[in-house]
Design a protein around this nucleic acid. Structure first.
Length: 258
DNA sequence: AACTGCTCCAACCGCAGTGAA
DNA sequence: TTTCACTGCGGTTGGAGCAGT
């Protein structure tokens, strides 16, 4: 038995959005807020599927979107994040305020890929084309487990028992960025929004772990393996010896830093 | 002016993750 | 534990616009 379609396709519009549809969607979300995408089209009087409404809002109509060309700084940031995360566009977008995953994905495919190739770098591996190197698979469960164990190597405070156990891949330094490289990432990145934090940092999915890893490595005070980590709460971003605001309610497991 | 090929990006599609029942 | 509805993500597509001939 297949999944029921997300909407009644026979009675929905497809293709480019009209100004009137945009206006209806904006007005409705202003009044009622985001969410309930499935019922939104009917409530807003739109002959669109909920997914289509959500996409239109997120990628085009949201008021906080930054339109216009990407800056060189954004370019470099995207490249750095992509080298770390792979094609995790939503995570990358979470570090670029005002940019959407779709926008970044398109920009990557049309500009940055070419830019990297002109530098003689493989856009997937971020390594020189002529290097004798077997490209790692894009972040799948196995590589995520590997990456999680890498976290364990860079700090003994960030434990993730589920991930670190069962890691059978051999560590081949040439296939992964060095610790120094990871920590050398530009720190001028905005913190994730509350929503992003809630969504990406909770749970124990591979995605969440990856997000935590990025957040961890982008922290202003990255703990070294030798010294005890500075007290920075990863989920609250509060630099206190003990963060009382999250230690009880936080389910990310990151409160160990508090 | 007409045609062709290319680029770019908005939008679609299918699947995975998540939480409620 | 299973099923199902819903949301979000990443890959892909289609068409508008532009440049070259």
């Amino acid at each position: 038995m297949g999944r029921s379609p997300c909407c009644e396709k026979a009675h929905t519009n497809k293709g480019a959005w009209t100004k009137e549809e945009d206006q209806r969607l904006i007005s409705y979300i202003r009044l009622h807020g985001e969410g309930c995408w499935r019922s939104l089209p009917k409530s807003a009087g739109l002959l669109r599927c909920g997914k289509s409404c959500r996409l239109r809002w997120i990628n085009y109509l949201r008021p906080d979107l930054k339109r216009g060309n990407f800056t060189d700084e954004e370019d470099e940031l995207i490249i750095k994040l992509h080298s770390l995360l792979g094609n995790k566009w939503s995570l990358i977008a979470g570090r670029l305020p005002g940019r959407t995953d779709n926008e970044i994905k398109n920009y990557w495919n049309t500009h940055i890929k070419r830019k990297l190739m002109s530098r003689g770098l493989d856009p997937q591996t971020h390594r020189p084309f002529n290097a004798t190197y077997q490209p790692p698979a894009p972040p799948n469960d196995a590589t995520l487990r590997h990456q999680s164990s890498e976290i364990k190597l860079t700090t003994d405070s960030f434990e993730d028992a589920k991930c670190s156990s069962g890691t059978t891949e051999e560590t081949q330094p040439d296939q992964h960025p060095q610790k120094g490289q990871l920590l050398n990432l530009d720190l001028a990145i905005g913190p994730p929004s509350q929503t992003e934090t809630r969504q990406a940092w909770s749970g124990n999915s591979a995605e969440s772990k990856l997000e935590r890893r990025v957040a961890y490595e982008f922290l202003p005070v990255a703990p070294s393996a030798a010294a005890a980590p500075e007290a920075v709460c990863l989920c609250c971003q509060i630099g206190l010896q003990r963060c009382s605001s999250c230690s009880n309610s936080c389910n990310t497991g990151l409160y160990r830093y508090c």
